[in-house]
Design a protein around this nucleic acid. Structure first.
Length: 283
DNA sequence: GCCCAGGAGTGTG
DNA sequence: CACACTCATGGG
């Protein structure tokens, strides 16, 4: 099936490029493709129109994509509010089409537990391994992300052979302590309660809790602080200190849309990286 | 080979 | 509260 969705502002390269989601690939023909829930989807952007291609019979594909790209966000309004900060205004100007994505809560949680102290190519590979071994086949060479029940059935010794390092134990433990409807209960919590609850899970500290709050549970006030954000805050705002101090600063400075501010800071800082380490494609 | 990665957990001062 | 150390590994 094929259909169009109008989304503006949007830049798929920025939004799906890397960092917040790990399963989209830019195919040789330039289209973005990847699994979303149980569908394999290809996206082609032409201005503010996204041309969607999905396998026939796919259910709710339009709703899946609209939710994933957060079409209901008033991105222009958010940018206007954040641009009251002159430093942020300069950063936003070249990243208008960068949107926060909405990930599946479970996939997001496991993905960011795997993401601890690994670089993005490796994170991508780990998630690929997990899906290939324990997910369901969608099309040739592409599997869905394994669901909670399936992953819970995997033994630690088996997970330890996946190349996850010390993260294998975290994944295994997290699966064991979460029952099937735990995450739907999390959805009803305030952001502050949610991040504290997430931090009770093995392998989930301040940073992962904020990533899962932002990308998985859609809490736009969450402000994940990794090494890149630390650098950005030090370089642009002369701020340094503990996670809680920096988090407090972000809350006062960026308020309810700190998550978008974080993404702009993150991409800007990554783009400053040496060419050899830059994971972003040209332009 | 060397460096570092969208850190967390634990122990210590 | 802040720091120091360990954890296990592969991509650039």
């Amino acid at each position: 099936m094929r259909f169009d969705i109008k989304i503006a502002p949007l830049n798929l390269d920025l939004t799906l490029g890397c960092g917040q989601t790990f399963r989209w690939r830019k195919a040789l023909d330039g289209l973005w493709e990847g699994p979303l829930a149980d569908q394999f989807i290809r996206l082609e952007q032409k201005g503010s129109i996204v041309h969607v291609m999905a396998s026939p019979g796919g259910r709710n594909v339009e709703e899946l994509i609209k939710a994933h790209l957060r079409v209901d966000d008033d991105v222009r309004g958010i940018q206007k509010a954040l641009a009251e900060d002159p430093v942020m205004a300069a950063g936003i100007s070249k990243l208008r089409g960068l949107r926060i994505v909405k990930l599946d809560e479970w996939e997001c949680l496991i993905s960011f537990i795997l993401a601890t102290y690994a670089n993005i190519p490796r994170i991508t590979k780990m998630i690929e391994t997990l899906s290939a071994r324990y997910g369901d086949r969608i099309v040739a060479g592409v599997n869905s992300f394994p669901n909670q029940e399936r992953l819970r059935s995997v033994t630690l010794s088996e997970l330890s052979k996946c190349g996850f390092g010390y993260r294998a134990k975290f994944i295994h433990e997290a699966c064991k302590v979460l029952d099937d409807d735990a995450l739907s209960e999390f959805q009803r919590m305030s952001y502050e309660d949610l991040r504290e609850r997430l931090k009770q899970l093995p392998g989930v500290g301040d940073k992962v809790a904020d990533c899962v709050s932002l990308f998985g549970f859609g809490r736009l006030d969450a402000f994940p602080i990794d090494v890149w954000i630390e650098r950005a805050l030090r370089r642009l705002y002369h701020k340094k200190g503990s996670y809680s101090k920096l988090r407090e600063f972000s809350h006062e400075r960026f308020g309810p849309y700190a998550g978008y501010a974080q993404e702009y800071l993150y991409y800007n800082e990554r783009l400053r990286a040496p060419r050899g380490r830059c994971v972003f494609s040209e332009e």
